[in-house]
Amino acid sequence: MHSFGYRANALLTFAITILALMCAMASLSDNLNSPTPSAEVLVLNINWFQKQPNGNDEVSMTLNISADLQSLFTWNTKQVFVFLAAEYETPKNSLNQISLWDGIIPSKEHSKFWIHTSNKYRFIDQGSNLRSKEFNLTLHWHVMPKTGKMFADKMDADP
C-alpha cells in the first residue's frame, strides 16, 4: 500500500494532473483578452500585368501595409502569424483567396509595424478575370499560443 512504487505513481499522476490543469487555465485565460487591432493597406502601384501561356492572368503590385497588432498578445502567446489576402469573386469561382504577403510576429515589441513591399506570393487567377477587377484586401491573423487553443480572425484592410 505504501510501497515506493505506489508513492512514485501517485506523485507522477498528481504532477501531470496539475500540469494539465495549468495548461488548460493558460489557454482559457486567452478568452479574457478582447483584442482591438487596426490595419491599413494601400496599393501604391500596379507594377506589371501579364497573361501566362496557359491563359491565367498574373499581376504584380506594390503594397504599403501598416498595422497595430499589440492587443493580440497575451502571456500565453508564442507568436502571431499575419497575412494579407486578396479576396474576389469570378464567374467560375465563388471565392478566390490569394495570400499576397505574410509575416511572423515573434513578440509584442514587433507588433506595430509598417512595411513597403511588392507581393511576396504570385497573384495568379484561375482564368483571365483580373483586368480591372475589384478585390478586397483582408488582413488575417492567426494567434499561436504557448499551449492550448489557437485563435484566428481577420479585418478589412481597405482604407
Binding site: 502569424f81 497575412f83 469561382n93 465563388s94 483567396q97 505574410d102
Partner: peptide, 22 residues
Amino acid sequence: HRVIKVHEREDTGEVDVLTKGD
C-alpha cells in the same frame, strides 16, 4: 502546413487549395 491560396468553385463547391510551410 498552412493554406495560402483557395479557389472555390461556384457550381460544385469544390476547392483548390495551395499550402506552404511557414
